[in-house]
Nucleic acid binder design. Structure first.
Length: 489
RNA sequence: GGCGCGUUCGUCUAGCGGCUAGGACGGAGCCCUCUCAAGGCUUAAACACGGGUUCGAUUCCCGUACGCGCUACCA
């Protein structure tokens, strides 16, 4: 049994797209599941579209996502080089071989002539395709013209009649008539191959067993199959993935939101969440589990369970997945991430002990979606309130709150290394002696220490802040809040 | 225009002839509660349409509609 080898073959034209990430991921998952190899190949056969640094960025992003390739640029295996522009002579040799065998031919038509016939075809409302003008030349004629240095391309000869059927793992048998196929250019006039030649030559030479790629390639697969037949090579298995869509169901693109993996990374999404989310756009394990690690995805993945229809890339659920993955992370790991964020925040000059940060993490865990939320949703753990939330003041601060808090501060002051429980009994004691409800103290106190109306349990907050800081914040609230509340003293 | 592919709640989806069409996110409501979350419970919400095949179609076949993709010396 020959081994499974899959590949992700992006062209280095920019950032890695989330759709590209999914394609790479499925190739990776399938290869790993089958104990095979996952190859990264760079398809840079269009010189005009090449973007400097794009390949490095692609590799970096894949690495970030945890989708590691076994062979590829910078990780040479036995089938390199893995960059198509470094394999030019190979494609040329195979293209000419096809010409020799009468399965392809030289074409000398100028771009102008091509443009002209296309224009006429469109005007006449017939489907635009090459008119096979140069296919009629004899070998000698063509060879003669080529020798004079006239620019040429090589086109594959597509049978004039009949049809071709191939099997797709996801879609079943697909049949198309030869007559709707163009005599596709396989070698351009600059000596570079087109995608169609390069993909076939490389997939064969690199012993790719399964071609897993986007659905946009489905219509040109017959050309590829034909090429395999012309070369007499074994045809790989095909699996064409459904597209990722914009909310309006068009093919996912920029303009309608972020599409680069980089964008999501910068927004603070965890790699685990993005990978999990993207894996579920078109695939599911068949039961009701939804939160998967990369290892679990490998264990469960199968091409048979990949769906046929496009999926809208809708980030609502991604946020939830981020929350779920974040909360599954061990404290130590979250601590590291929080410290990193702190370094980049306005609090980077203050030192917080790991123990302190860990207590903040445990208090906030259920309340955060992103790591940055630990800081943004509870800045009061890092400095005293700068202001007091107006709605909360209005709702929770009463005319007598200052005197109540004063009394409470007195109760707190005498406590010796207080615990949650001792704070609580102290508060209850104060409420009782003031003849008020506990909540008449609780809410103003929360406002005093945090500046806001929402957050972890009050006693958790003050235990974390400590007695001195708590009392200090109470006093400052007694001083400042009445003015905001608008009560006359 | 031609060719191909697709179509189950708003979104991601389960379903592979017989189900009260299930789950998740999001929404609504209730419970818990010092707030906010989390958690628990409840709820609204879908088989594009028309023909067949069949005792019986969401499921199989054929049309139609709609959507998307491809139609380059781009990938």
């Amino acid at each position: 049994m020959s081994s499974v080898r899959t590949r992700f073959a992006p062209s280095p034209t920019g950032f890695l797209h989330v759709g590209g990430l999914r394609t790479a991921l499925y190739n990776y998952l399938f290869a790993k599941k089958e104990n095979g190899s996952f190859i990264l190949r760079i398809e840079d056969t269009d010189r005009s579209r090449k973007v400097e640094g794009a390949m490095e960025n692609l590799i970096d992003t894949l690495h970030w996502a945890g989708v590691e390739f076994d062979e590829g640029p910078g990780k040479e295996g036995n089938f390199g080089p893995y960059i198509q522009s470094q394999r030019l002579s190979l494609y040329q040799r195979y293209a000419h071989q096809l010409v020799e065998e009468g399965k392809a031919y030289y074409c000398f038509c100028t771009p102008e002539r091509l443009e002209e016939i296309r224009r006429k075809q469109i005007a006449a409302k017939i489907s635009a395709s090459y008119d096979r003008h140069c296919r009629a030349f004899t070998k000698e004629e063509a060879e003669k013209r080529r020798k004079t240095g006239e620019p040429f391309v090589i086109r594959m000869k597509v049978p004039l009649e009949g049809e071709l059927t191939f099997t797709d793992i996801i879609r079943g048998d697909v049949t198309i008539a030869y007559k709707i196929l163009d005599d596709q250019v396989i070698l351009k006039s600059d000596g570079y191959p087109t995608y169609h030649l390069a993909v076939v030559v490389d997939d064969h030479l690199m012993k790719i067993s399964h071609v897993i790629r986007g659905e946009e390639w489905l219509p040109s697969t017959p050309k590829h199959v034909l090429l395999y037949k012309y070369f007499g090579w074994e045809i790989p298995q095909f699996a064409h993935l459904p597209l990722l869509l914009n909310p309006d169901k068009s093919k996912l693109s920029k303009r309608q939101g972020d599409v680069a993996v980089e964008d999501y990374r910068l927004k603070g999404y965890l790699r685990e969440a993005l990978v999990n989310f993207v894996a579920f756009l078109g695939w599911n394990p068949g039961d009701e589990r939804e939160i998967f690690s990369l290892e679990e995805l490998i264990r469960e993945f199968s091409l048979e369970r990949v769906g046929k229809s496009g999926a809208v890339f809708n980030t609502e659920k991604l946020d939830w997945m981020n929350f779920e993955h974040l909360r599954r992370k061990p404290d130590a790991e979250v601590l590291c991430m929080v410290k990193e964020k702190l370094m980049l925040s306005e609090f980077n000059t203050t030192h917080f002990s790991d123990a302190y940060l860990l207590s903040v993490i445990s208090a906030m865990r259920e309340r955060v979606t992103f790591v940055k939320d630990f800081i943004e949703k509870s800045p009061y753990f890092f400095r005293a309130p700068l202001h007091y939330d107006a709605d909360t003041v209005k709702k929770r601060w009463q005319k007598d709150s200052p005197s109540y808090l004063k009394k409470l501060a007195e109760e707190f002051s005498v406590l010796e290394s207080p615990t949650k429980e001792s704070y609580e009994t102290a508060l209850h004691r104060a409420a009782e002696s003031l003849h008020i409800k506990n909540s008449d103290l609780i809410h103003p106190l929360r406002l005093a220490v945090s500046g806001m109306g929402a957050g972890p349990g009050l006693y958790d907050i003050i235990v974390i802040l400590g007695k001195d800081e708590t009392v200090r914040r109470m006093n400052s609230a007694i001083e400042k809040v009445p003015a905001i509340a608008g009560f006359q003293q």
